[in-house]
Amino acid sequence: NQASVVANQLIPINVALTLVMMRSEVVTPVGIPAEDIPRLVSMQVNRAVPLGTTLMPDMVKGYA
């Protein structure tokens, strides 16, 4: 099963993503693939993302 990107903490809106904010985990439904974590660094989410939430492509500005 493919690992997805999961919030490692509350990720506020309009804050640049850092490695420490994200972890990889096998979850259902599948979200952004874990291998895209380096690409996500410095991008921003378009809504607050609670701890443990799977990041979906539509949550990250400029990802999709």
Rank of each mutant, 00 (worst) to 15 (best):
residue 23 R to N: 08
residue 23 R to D: 05
residue 24 S to Q: 12
residue 20 V to I: 14
residue 50 P to D: 11
residue 58 D to P: 06
residue 35 E to R: 06
residue 24 S to H: 10
residue 11 I to N: 00
residue 18 T to G: 05
residue 4 S to H: 01
residue 26 V to S: 13
residue 44 Q to N: 12
residue 8 N to H: 09
residue 62 G to H: 09
residue 44 Q to R: 12
residue 60 V to H: 02
residue 46 N to S: 11
residue 39 R to M: 15
residue 59 M to A: 07
residue 34 A to E: 10
residue 13 I to Q: 14
residue 56 M to N: 05
residue 55 L to K: 02
residue 30 V to N: 13
residue 62 G to P: 05
residue 33 P to T: 06
residue 35 E to A: 10
residue 10 L to E: 13
residue 51 L to V: 11
residue 38 P to G: 11
residue 34 A to Q: 06
residue 37 I to K: 07
residue 27 V to A: 09
residue 49 V to T: 05
residue 63 Y to N: 04
residue 32 I to C: 04
residue 63 Y to E: 04
residue 2 Q to R: 05
residue 25 E to S: 10
residue 22 M to R: 00
residue 33 P to M: 07
residue 52 G to V: 03
residue 33 P to H: 09
residue 9 Q to S: 10
residue 16 A to F: 09
residue 28 T to Y: 11
residue 47 R to H: 13
residue 40 L to R: 00
residue 10 L to M: 14
residue 40 L to C: 04
residue 52 G to Y: 04
residue 18 T to R: 08
residue 49 V to Q: 00
residue 31 G to F: 03
residue 8 N to C: 07
residue 5 V to E: 00
residue 21 M to Q: 04
residue 50 P to E: 13
residue 1 N to G: 15
residue 24 S to G: 12
residue 38 P to W: 07
residue 35 E to S: 11
residue 36 D to L: 09
residue 53 T to M: 15
residue 47 R to S: 10
residue 9 Q to M: 10
residue 17 L to R: 00
residue 52 G to K: 04
residue 9 Q to N: 06
residue 27 V to W: 03
residue 38 P to Q: 11
residue 32 I to Y: 02
residue 4 S to P: 01
residue 31 G to Q: 01
residue 45 V to G: 01
residue 13 I to N: 11
residue 28 T to V: 14
residue 18 T to C: 04
residue 4 S to I: 02
residue 61 K to H: 14
residue 14 N to H: 13
residue 47 R to E: 10
residue 53 T to Q: 14
residue 42 S to K: 09
residue 61 K to F: 08
residue 38 P to V: 11
residue 7 A to I: 03
residue 55 L to W: 02
residue 6 V to T: 06
residue 5 V to H: 02
residue 14 N to A: 10
residue 52 G to A: 07
residue 32 I to H: 01
residue 26 V to L: 11
residue 54 T to A: 05
residue 6 V to G: 01
residue 63 Y to K: 04
residue 52 G to H: 10
residue 60 V to E: 02
residue 15 V to T: 15
residue 15 V to Q: 15
residue 12 P to C: 06
residue 11 I to K: 00
residue 47 R to V: 14
residue 11 I to E: 00
residue 44 Q to H: 13
residue 1 N to M: 15
residue 54 T to Y: 03
residue 16 A to P: 12
residue 14 N to T: 07
residue 45 V to A: 06
residue 37 I to G: 04
residue 12 P to L: 05
residue 45 V to Y: 03
residue 5 V to N: 02
residue 1 N to Y: 14
residue 5 V to I: 12
residue 56 M to T: 13
residue 32 I to W: 03
residue 29 P to C: 05
residue 22 M to Y: 02
residue 11 I to D: 01
residue 44 Q to Y: 14
residue 1 N to I: 15
residue 7 A to H: 02
residue 28 T to F: 10
residue 50 P to G: 08
residue 57 P to K: 08
residue 48 A to C: 14
residue 33 P to K: 08
residue 49 V to F: 03
residue 53 T to V: 15
residue 57 P to A: 08
residue 38 P to D: 09
residue 57 P to W: 06
residue 57 P to S: 07
residue 4 S to A: 03
residue 58 D to M: 09
residue 58 D to Y: 07
residue 24 S to K: 11
residue 45 V to S: 07
residue 58 D to G: 08
residue 31 G to S: 01
residue 30 V to C: 11
residue 60 V to K: 02
residue 19 L to F: 12
residue 12 P to W: 04
residue 5 V to L: 03
residue 24 S to I: 07
residue 63 Y to S: 04
residue 61 K to G: 07
residue 30 V to L: 14
residue 3 A to V: 08
residue 30 V to W: 08
residue 8 N to K: 07
residue 53 T to K: 06
residue 14 N to M: 06
residue 8 N to Q: 11
residue 17 L to N: 00
residue 54 T to V: 08
residue 10 L to A: 12
residue 34 A to R: 05
residue 35 E to G: 10
residue 20 V to E: 13
residue 56 M to W: 04
residue 52 G to D: 11
residue 14 N to D: 15
residue 27 V to F: 02
residue 43 M to H: 14
residue 23 R to H: 05
residue 19 L to C: 13
residue 48 A to F: 15
residue 53 T to N: 08
residue 50 P to C: 07
residue 3 A to M: 14
residue 12 P to V: 04
residue 50 P to T: 11
residue 3 A to P: 10
residue 37 I to P: 01
residue 32 I to G: 02
residue 13 I to Y: 15
residue 48 A to S: 15
residue 4 S to K: 01
residue 20 V to C: 11
residue 63 Y to L: 08
residue 26 V to N: 15
residue 62 G to E: 13
residue 46 N to P: 02
residue 8 N to F: 03
residue 16 A to T: 09
residue 59 M to R: 03
residue 44 Q to L: 11
residue 50 P to A: 08
residue 49 V to G: 01
residue 3 A to I: 06
residue 60 V to D: 03
residue 38 P to S: 14
residue 29 P to W: 03
residue 3 A to E: 14
residue 33 P to F: 12
residue 6 V to H: 00
residue 5 V to W: 02
residue 30 V to Q: 14
residue 23 R to V: 05
residue 35 E to P: 07
residue 31 G to T: 02
residue 12 P to K: 09
residue 2 Q to Y: 14
residue 6 V to R: 03
residue 53 T to E: 08
residue 4 S to G: 05
residue 61 K to C: 15
residue 62 G to T: 05
residue 50 P to R: 07
residue 44 Q to S: 12
residue 18 T to K: 06
residue 39 R to I: 08
residue 8 N to E: 10
residue 15 V to L: 06
residue 10 L to Y: 12
residue 48 A to W: 10
residue 10 L to Q: 13
residue 29 P to R: 04
residue 41 V to N: 04
residue 40 L to F: 01
residue 16 A to C: 13
residue 41 V to Y: 04
residue 64 A to C: 15
residue 13 I to T: 14
residue 21 M to Y: 05
residue 2 Q to G: 15
residue 19 L to A: 12
residue 52 G to S: 06
residue 56 M to L: 12
residue 27 V to N: 03
residue 56 M to Y: 11
residue 4 S to V: 01
residue 14 N to K: 05
residue 52 G to N: 15
residue 58 D to S: 13
